[in-house]
């Protein structure tokens, strides 16, 4: 575990940059993490991030299929919002652990 300063906050993350304590997350951190991934956050991005954080809080295993059925985005949009590995990227920006699902 590494202690890192993101957007002025001290947070704990793993060596791949995923926050290990989702409660340490806030929107400013999300913005900076998104910028690191080259993503300009829109309202739609926030909606997806909130959804992922809620799912994580409820201890639901997150999959692309679930995101596609969330009613927030379809799978195509999800790939457009977070290009090149949407579930991983979105989880990282949302401050939740890296998804372990293969689907």
């Amino acid at each position: 575990m590494i202690e890192k300063k993101i957007a002025g906050y001290n947070v704990l993350c793993n060596e791949q940059g995923y926050l290990t304590e989702p409660d340490q997350w806030n929107k400013e951190i999300g913005l900076e993490l998104a910028a690191e991934e080259g993503i300009n956050i829109t309202d739609k991005h926030w909606e997806v991030l909130e959804y992922l954080r809620n799912q994580h809080k409820q201890e639901v295993a997150i999959t692309i299929r679930k995101v596609g059925k969330s009613g927030i985005v379809d799978i195509k949009e999800f790939y457009q919002l977070f290009p090149d590995g949407p579930l991983k990227k979105a989880s990282k920006i949302a401050g939740i652990p890296k998804p372990v699902s293969c689907i």
């Binding site: 299929r65 596609g68 799978i75 195509k76 790939y79 689907i103």
Partner: peptide
Amino acid sequence: KLDIPPVEEFLEILSASG
């Protein structure tokens, strides 16, 4: 149970994923 979709839906997911 593992959230693996049926064949038809899986094909749609694949196509939507690029």
